[in-house]
Design a protein around this nucleic acid. Structure first.
Length: 394
DNA sequence: ACTGATGCGTC
DNA sequence: GTCGGAC
DNA sequence: GTCCGACGACGCATCAGT
């Protein structure tokens, strides 16, 4: 079996763009995946949905609109390679571009991209550029791709979805699902120091709106900061951002707090916010700290950062995401009583209103409302978590 | 050593 | 993060 | 209800050019 061309990916994407039906899109992708060679599955999946690199990888192309525009304005070089681009070659080009850094790297990135595009036909060029901007415009992103992978592998969509939540590498999930099947897929678990996608919340604008979806809710302050996920084994601590990048070095005082917990193994989740005199500072103040790599000590003096923890996803060898919120919360309280975000469980709307008013008075954004019996569903948005931001407030 | 252009990631 | 639109 | 695509403000990092 010969290697699959990138042209095949581009043609698939083009067909997807002209296909409205979800079912049909899924079928097209499934058929395509099943025809690929083993080592083509992961890169092809990434290329089709335009992600290119795993979500927790720090690799980046650093190619943007300006660079692409410059290349396209230059006279296109005639193709010197008679051989068509393959899926694997495109991946190699992009890996190489991402790996370049240091003096002269921008120019070399540009040249490398130019030579990649020079080897591509017009449809391929179009989709390579869409990949760079993550704007595939064919109506297929992670959700439909996961369904297609499930069909190709003949397993339940929930199993694929769960594996993807826990590994944050959809290409790898596809490879395992299709080549190894159910047993290996089920073995994908939360692994310490490999971040998982944070659970998401829906918007609500009033307490009443929340209580329409349930009678008992756990409320927490909604902090105006940045979501972080802390992985730790003893003194070994890594802090991950919402998009799973490693921000440990930017937040030394938070890493230190984690080390002092004296917890064997844990994955903790919380919010980092900038504070002064016990009051929260605007989000922009936190941004002066959040991804900083230079002069961190000086920045620490200017902007103090506080940590509020509100969830626990893993403890001493065991994943806790399937436990109800209240049970995870209890484990969290036991592991780190000092850093807990305040929480009120109630079915009383008036009590919730009082808590909301307090949150706003103290300078926070509003409340989070969480269903007490709900498991932690990484990367998912549903009616289990609400962010409650009343209109009319700043 | 400094400034501007470009790209990325947070909300 | 928000928003609207397609299914 | 869910997913997808298009959008904005802001601050920092890195590299290019002087």
């Amino acid at each position: 079996m010969s290697e699959t061309t990138f042209s095949a990916v581009a043609v698939l994407c083009d067909t997807l763009a002209r296909t409205a039906s979800r079912r049909e899109k899924i079928r097209l992708i499934k058929e395509f995946l099943l025809r690929l060679k083993e080592d083509e599955i992961a890169p092809a999946v990434a290329q089709i949905i335009g992600t290119i690199f795993p979500e927790d990888a720090s690799t980046n192309l650093e190619i943007g609109y300006s660079t692409v525009k410059r290349i396209s304005e230059r006279k296109r070089q005639t193709t010197l390679f008679p051989a068509p681009l393959t899926i694997l070659e495109v991946r190699e080009y992009l890996n190489e571009i991402a790996a370049l850094q240091g003096s002269g790297s921008r120019e070399r990135k540009e040249k490398l991209l130019e030579s990649l595009l020079g080897r591509a036909g017009s449809l391929e060029v179009s989709y390579i550029i869409r990949m760079i901007f993550k704007e595939m415009e064919h109506g297929v992103s992670e959700g439909l791709m996961l369904e297609a992978i499930a069909e190709a592998a003949r397993v339940e969509p929930e199993l694929v979805s769960r594996a993807n939540m826990l590994s944050a590498d959809i290409g790898e999930v596809a490879r395992i699902a299709i080549l190894k099947g159910r047993t290996e897929l089920e073995k994908i678990q939360l692994v310490l120091f490999r971040p998982v996608k944070p659970m998401l919340a829906e918007m609500a604008y009033s307490i009443d709106e929340v209580f329409e979806e349930g009678s008992l809710w756990a409320f927490e302050y909604k902090f105006d900061g940045a979501r972080i996920q802390i992985h730790m084994r003893g003194k070994d601590v890594r802090i991950f951002s919402r998009r799973l990048s490693d921000v440990t070095s930017s937040l030394p005082e938070i890493a230190e707090l984690a080390r002092e917990l004296g917890v064997e193994e844990a994955v903790l989740e919380g919010e980092a916010i900038a504070v002064k005199d016990g009051r929260p500072l605007p989000f922009q103040e936190l941004m002066r700290r959040f991804r900083r790599v230079h002069e961190i000590d000086a920045a620490r003096m200017v902007v103090a950062v506080r940590l509020y923890l509100f969830d626990l996803l893993y403890r001493d060898g065991k994943t806790t995401i399937d436990m109800p919120y209240t049970a995870r919360r209890a484990l969290l309280a036991e592991a780190c009583p000092s850093l807990l975000a305040e929480m009120v469980i109630t079915q009383d709307r008036a009590k919730a209103e009082v808590f909301l008013k307090r949150a706003l008075d103290e300078g926070h954004e509003g409340l989070m409302a969480k269903a007490p019996d709900s498991p932690y569903t990484p990367g998912k948005r549903g009616k289990k978590w609400f962010k409650l931001k009343p209109c009319g407030y700043p």
